[in-house]
Design a protein around this nucleic acid. Structure first.
Lengths: 189, 189
DNA sequence: GACACCTATTCAACAAGTTGAGTATACGGG
DNA sequence: CCCGTATACTCAACTTGTTGAATAGGTGTC
């Protein structure tokens, strides 16, 4: 249910091609919804057939042509209706948490490795968000941006993403500290 | 993929009935995986047919009989194999974030209401986790618990849940502060 | 030049999550 | 007594997410 509105929300920022959307929704960078190219192209077909978006082919040199999608007035209305509806609660579903929950004494090396990877991914995501943040501010302060922006949603979800990844990093480091107490490993970082 | 291992992980804490598992996995309290009763009963059927769990009927007075499930040695092995595999990255998917991202000036009252609800849900979840935390410690300190516990996963995922809900509350309050700047509402809290 | 990756999109089949109910009895509060 | 909730579980159909590829040409590095 959420994917279609996430796509519509993304198109509020401006027209975009499917490939472009695929990059925005990639699990490694997405900060409000993640999706695969297969999902996105399927949903774009549906949204187009329902009149919520309008696609056009853009010819390119030295690259395959691309299909660019634009939000329609019906799509904007659908978004507003979605915002007015009761909101589903956020659902926690994370394979890493399942591993940590299940880990026995013999599993700690594998869990440590997974935690270290997750921490690294969180660091990279945070760096990317900081980069987006700089681009959003464009030299202004946060307060100035908020005072001037027509829509503050992108800023707020970005801040949410940053908070989330910071908490992620913090938790990973707490976990590693506990693992160090239980089975010390002579490595750095 | 994750649900089955989440169920197996939950059964590490001890045998449990389907109804009991439904409560643990309810979206309002779950801190590593959430699932509906329909999913859980279907997955339990599969796990039983594959030999990862063993179910038995427990007769009760004044209540319908219940089916209680126990982890099998094959189930434990399956869990260990799962822990050793590469870990899928966490995927962000949240309807509330989509609404915030999409919100225009006219949507702010609806967004405010949704944020306030989410903050309340996060507060309740955090209170519940604090309660579980107290039960886990059973009068001991965190350090004492960690020193004595055979498996620290439940403690670690609980801490993760607490951190996550604290970040949630923090973000909601930041969002409300921004909304207050934009369209002040004379209400309390 | 070879190889890895990028650009841009597609497909079918399957797995997981959701919807919209339903069964029947017990319990508790007003 | 009535109503809402709890206990315990079930079903089919649907939507959403995933898998495991695939197409073809361009780009960049070694």
């Amino acid at each position: 249910m959420g994917l279609r509105h996430a796509v519509l929300a993304s198109l509020l920022e401006g027209d975009a091609a499917g490939y472009e959307l695929s990059k925005r929704f990639d699990v490694s960078v997405a900060n409000f919804w993640s999706a695969t190219p297969q999902q996105l192209y399927r949903e774009l077909e549906r949204l187009e057939s329902e009149g919520f978006v309008e696609g056009r082919v853009v010819e390119q040199q030295r690259r395959p042509n691309k299909r660019v999608f634009a939000l329609t007035p019906a799509g904007r209305a659908e978004l507003r209706a979605f915002i007015a509806q009761p909101t589903r609660p956020g659902a926690m579903r994370d394979d890493l948490l399942v591993k940590v929950q299940a880990a026995g004494p013999d599993d700690l090396p594998a869990v440590r490795k997974a935690i270290e990877e997750r921490r690294q991914q969180a660091r990279e995501k945070l760096a990317f968000y900081d980069h987006l943040h700089d681009g959003l501010l464009d030299g202004r302060t946060d307060a100035a941006h908020l005072a001037e922006a027509e829509r503050v949603g992108p800023y707020l979800t970005l801040m949410g993403g940053r908070l989330y990844e910071q908490a992620n990093i913090h938790w990973c480091e707490s976990v590693l500290a506990v693992l160090d107490e239980r089975s010390p490993v002579p490595d750095g970082d």
